[in-house]
Amino acid sequence: MILVLRALGVGDLATAVPALRGLRAAFPGETLSLAAPTWLTPLIDTIGGIDRIVPAGELEPLTAAPAMPRLAVNLHGSGPESHRRLQALAPEALWAFASRPAGHLDGPGWHDDEHEVQRWCRLVRYYGVPCSPEDLDLAVPAVDVPRGVTIIHPGAKSPARRWPAARFAAVARGLRSAGHRVLITGSASEHDLCVRVAHEAGLDAACVPRTELAELAALVAGARLVISGDTGIAHLATAYRTPSVVLFGPVSPQRWGPPAGRPYHRAIWHGTRSERGDLPGPVHPALLAVTEDEVLAAVEKVCHADVTP
């Protein structure tokens, strides 16, 4: 059995897809298990080739994982904590970035400014597994959702990455006036924020759907456009080649942005250097520098771009 650790969120999973597919192709006869939060199951199913999901929290021991896997692969972080979680299972081999504190001296070095997709491809390539950073597409969940909508997603995990609600509302008003059918999406904990944006934009309650992960993925796959901050839904737009405008604050799009060479994805950033993406707040100055008019101008560009693969 091969056990891969990636116990994080939606965007983290999406950026690891090429590395996961590389591992699947390299070991076709092996059981490929992914240690991840179980709520990600609908999205994991869209990757293909994952035989088993091992329930795992971000900083929790892997108590549900079988001991002594033939190979453990750390697609979670640079160590030492994540390395030690896998080492506790006594795998025959561990593929991971070099970490002296964890006693793992094999593996490539960690580069802070590397794009997240490239990072994990580089890791598996180091161990001889081919990996294509362009292999980001996901299958569409078989659920019934509206098509052709414009999605505005105002939430993000950290306050520093949340563009002000009033600005999202202004963009929503402008797009509705231009003929877009606008929906405001968010997690359960972000519902009040979504309602506030909808209210300020003059939208009714039907424009704030409560979506599970499979429904959100299908909604993005069939959408006309996605506008969001630097958060998981932006990576779903990449995975489904849906035109998107993504607003960045503390972290550069060079690390977490959509692939280069896709004119239908546009990242807006006014920063000068990357910082931690989990800053507690307030809204990062680079994000505050983004204006409503700038977002609406970017929408015009991505909506008229060629989406042909």
Rank of each mutant, 00 (worst) to 15 (best):
A139W: 02
G49S: 10
A19L: 00
A98D: 15
G271W: 06
L86M: 13
I2P: 08
T211V: 14
L296E: 04
G109D: 13
D51P: 02
G79D: 07
E292P: 08
A96L: 06
L20N: 03
G186W: 09
A25C: 05
P28D: 06
H235V: 01
D278K: 14
V182A: 05
A206R: 12
P263G: 10
L5I: 03
V73P: 05
A267M: 05
E92T: 15
P91M: 03
P28E: 04
R241D: 09
V195D: 03
H180P: 05
L8D: 10
G103S: 14
L216C: 12
N74K: 03
L136A: 00
E92H: 10
S82Q: 00
A198P: 04
D45K: 14
A267R: 02
A178C: 11
V220G: 00
A19M: 00
G232W: 02
G148V: 11
A205R: 09
V283A: 14
Q254Y: 10
S228C: 15
C121H: 01
D135R: 02
S99H: 06
T41N: 11
W110Y: 10
R100K: 12
A260S: 12
P101D: 09
G202I: 08
H235K: 03
V307E: 09
I227F: 07
D204Y: 08
W269I: 02
T31M: 13
L213W: 06
A188K: 13
G261W: 01
G49Y: 08
E30T: 13
A67I: 13
A217Y: 02
A65R: 08
D306C: 13
M1Y: 15
A7C: 00
G202H: 08
L20T: 00
S252A: 12
P61G: 01
E81M: 15
H180L: 04
V17Y: 00
C121L: 01
P280T: 06
V149Q: 11
L40P: 01
W120C: 01
T41F: 05
H111C: 10
L43T: 07
P250A: 05
A218F: 03
L62C: 10
P285I: 08
R167S: 13
A142S: 12
A7F: 02
